[in-house]
Design a protein around this nucleic acid. Structure first.
Lengths: 328, 328
DNA sequence: TTGTAGGCGTTATCAG
DNA sequence: CTGATAACGCCTACAA
C-alpha cells in the first residue's frame, strides 16, 4: 500500500483535487470546504510530494553547499555564513561532502544536476578541466568558493592567500623571527599551490631564506602531526601552516619534543577557524575571510538564480591577521 | 529560453523520446542510435531533470542527516560513519542544520516531507510532542539518533550516557579525585537531562557529594568559557563536562586562572570527538559511540527504506572511556 | 467558489 | 531495436 496522493484526499473528502490543492496552498475556499479537506488530510496522513510540486512550480527552494571535508572547521565558519544568507532569502541549505578527490567532485556536480536544488555552492580543493566542464553543464546555477580559471566563466569568490601569507611573515619578522618554515598541505591542490607561492613571495619580500618547507599528506590534524618531526629538522624559530588543523597538529608535536610555543617556536595557522580560538595556546591565524567569502558567495548564487544571464563576477576577499598567543 | 528537455533532444536527433531515455540509461540500442543521441545531448547541453526522474522511479537516492550544530565535532564523527554506510549502499548523503530550537526541528521534518530524500536521520537536541508527531507524519522513513519515547514507534539509536558518566567517575575516583563538579549544557535538552541524572547517580554509587553543578547556555566552547569561573567556585579537583566543547572552553578558563590540568584540576569531556584529541592537553573523554551510533542508525534507515513495515528497533550503544592527559 | 483537464520531464509498457 | 503513449503527483488555466 502506497502513500496517499492528492487524489485520495479529494475522494475521501468528496471534493475535487483542485480544491484540495487550493486549501493546502491557502487559496480562497469555503469554510466548510477547508474543513472537509483538512479532515481528510489528517485522516489519511497525506503529505504532499515535494518533487511533484517542484516539477510543476520549477523550484525546490533548496540550495546545496559542497565542501571537501566536514571535519575541517573552516567550513563550519563558511557554512554558518552561507546558511544565514540563504535562509534569510527563504531557501533551505543542505551540505554535502565531496572528498578531496577531484573525481568525486565531478561526480557530485554531475549528480546534482538540475532538480535536487536550485543552486550549488562548491568549494573545490582540486580543480581540473573536467570539473570546470561539469560545472558549466550542470544545469543549475553554480558559484565557486575558490579559484577557477577566469575563462570558466563562473562566479567565484576567493581568498587572497599570498597577501595573507605576507601578513603572517610581516608579523613574525616584526617579532624578530627570521628562520621561518612552512608546513603546507598537498601541493597539488588549489590552496596548496597558492599558499606555497605566497610563502615564497612573502619571504622574498623580506629578503629571507625559508628555513624549510614540508608537505603534509592532507589538510588534517593527523597529517600535521605526522610530519611534525620533519618540520622541526631545520630548527625554525617560527612555522607558518597552510591551515589551522595542520598548525594544531604541529603544536602537539612541538610540545611533545619539549619545545615551547611561542618562546622556542612561534606557530601561525591559516583560516582563523573556531579551532584557532579553541586550541592551546590560542593560535595566531591568518583570517582568509571564510565568513565573508561564504556570505558573498551565497549572495552571488542568489543573484544568479534570479538572473542566469548576468555576467560572471569574480570577487576577492582580503585577509587579516588574528594575533593570539602562539606568536610572541 | 528554458533548458532543453528530453523532447528537444529527441527532435534534434530525429528519434523518439523513448530512445533518448534508453540511450541515457544504458539500455540496448544501435551503435548509430547511441551516436546520434549523444551528439544531440552534447550540442544542446541537455541535462536530465532529476526530480522528474525520481517522480517516475519513486526514489531520489538521497538521504538527509539533520544535526543541531555543524560546529559540534561530535557530529563530524557521526557524519563520517553515516556517510560511509549510505554511500556504500548507493545513496548520497546531505546534511542539514536544525538549530537548537525544537520549532526549527519540527519545521525541518515537516519540510523534508516526501520528495527531497528517501529517508531522514535526525539527531534532535530537544524533543517534544510536536516533533514526534511530525516525524510520524513526515511521509518518509525516519531514524532518530537520540532518545525519544518508545511509544513514538520510531527506530532509535541512542547512547548510554549514565553508564558513560559512571566510567568517568570510576576513573577519577581511582585516581584519587573525590571533589567532582559537573559542567552541563542546557538542562532542558535531551542530552542535558540524561547526563545530569547520570552524574548524580554515578556520584551516589560512590557515596560522593557533587562539588558543584553548573549549567552552560549551550553545548559550545564559548558557553563553556563563560561559566568557567562559576565552575571553579567550588574548588573541585575534577570536572566532568557534558561534552568536549564545554570541556575545552573550561580548560581555557582553568589555565587563565593559573590552574594546571590535570595536576590541580582534572577535566573529562564527553563524546570523544576529534577535538578531544586535538585539544591541549589531550582530553580524557567518554566515548559515547558516536561513530557506531551513526553507523547503526544508517543501517536502520536503510533497512526501513527496504521494508517500512518492520517493527521499530531501539538500539543502545555502550560507552567506553578514552583516557588522555587531562586526567592523572 | 468549485471542478475538469492539460502539462511539468521522465521512465516503462506495449506494440510494431 | 524502436516508437508512441500512459503514468508519476501536483498545480493552474479555464470553464461551469
Amino acid at each position: 500500500m502506497s502513500r496517499p496522493t492528492i487524489a485520495a484526499v479529494a475522494q475521501a473528502a468528496g471534493v475535487s483535487v483542485a480544491s484540495v490543492s487550493r486549501v493546502l496552498n491557502g487559496l480562497p475556499a469555503t469554510e466548510e470546504m477547508a474543513e472537509r479537506v483538512q479532515r481528510a488530510v489528517e485522516q489519511l496522513g497525506y503529505v504532499p510530494d515535494s518533487r511533484a510540486r517542484s516539477l510543476k512550480v520549477g523550484r525546490t527552494f533548496q540550495l546545496t553547499l559542497a565542501v571537501a571535508d566536514v571535519g575541517n572547521p573552516v567550513y563550519v565558519t563558511m557554512m554558518r555564513a552561507v546558511e544565514e544568507v540563504v535562509s534569510a532569502a527563504g531557501y533551505r541549505l543542505v551540505v554535502t561532502t565531496t572528498g578531496a578527490d577531484v573525481v568525486d567532485e565531478v561526480a557530485l556536480v554531475r549528480g546534482m544536476a538540475r532538480g535536487y536544488a536550485d543552486g550549488l555552492l562548491i568549494s573545490p580543493i582540486r580543480v581540473d578541466e573536467d570539473l570546470v566542464k561539469s560545472i558549466r553543464e550542470c544545469g543549475v546555477p553554480v558559484v565557486v568558493a575558490g579559484n577557477v580559471p577566469a575563462k570558466a566563466g563562473v562566479d567565484t569568490v576567493r581568498a587572497n592567500s599570498p597577501k595573507g601569507m605576507l601578513l603572517a611573515v610581516d608579523h613574525l619578522v616584526a617579532k624578530g623571527r627570521t628562520h621561518i618554515a612552512f608546513l603546507n598541505g598537498p601541493a597539488d591542490t588549489v590552496p596548496g599551490t597558492a599558499r606555497a607561492k605566497g610563502f615564497a613571495d612573502a619571504l622574498k619580500a623580506h629578503d629571507l631564506q625559508p628555513a624549510g618547507e614540508t608537505e603534509a599528506a592532507d589538510f588534517t590534524f593527523a597529517a600535521g602531526r605526522a610530519v611534525g618531526g620533519e618540520v622541526l629538522r631545520s630548527q625554525p624559530d617560527a612555522v607558518i601552516c597552510a591551515n589551522d588543523l595542520l598548525a594544531v597538529g604541529l603544536m602537539h608535536e612541538l610540545v611533545g619534543a619539549g619545545l615551547r610555543v611561542p618562546e622556542d617556536v612561534a606557530v601561525v595557522g591559516m583560516d582563523d577557524s573556531e579551532l584557532a580560538e579553541q586550541s592551546f595556546p590560542p593560535l595566531t591565524s591568518v583570517n582568509l575571510g571564510s565568513a565573508e567569502r561564504g556570505r558573498r558567495a551565497a549572495e552571488l548564487l542568489l543573484a544568479r538564480i534570479e538572473d542566469n544571464d548576468r555576467r560572471p563576477r569574480r570577487i576577492v576577499v582580503q585577509p587579516s591577521l588574528s594575533v593570539r598567543r602562539s606568536t610572541p
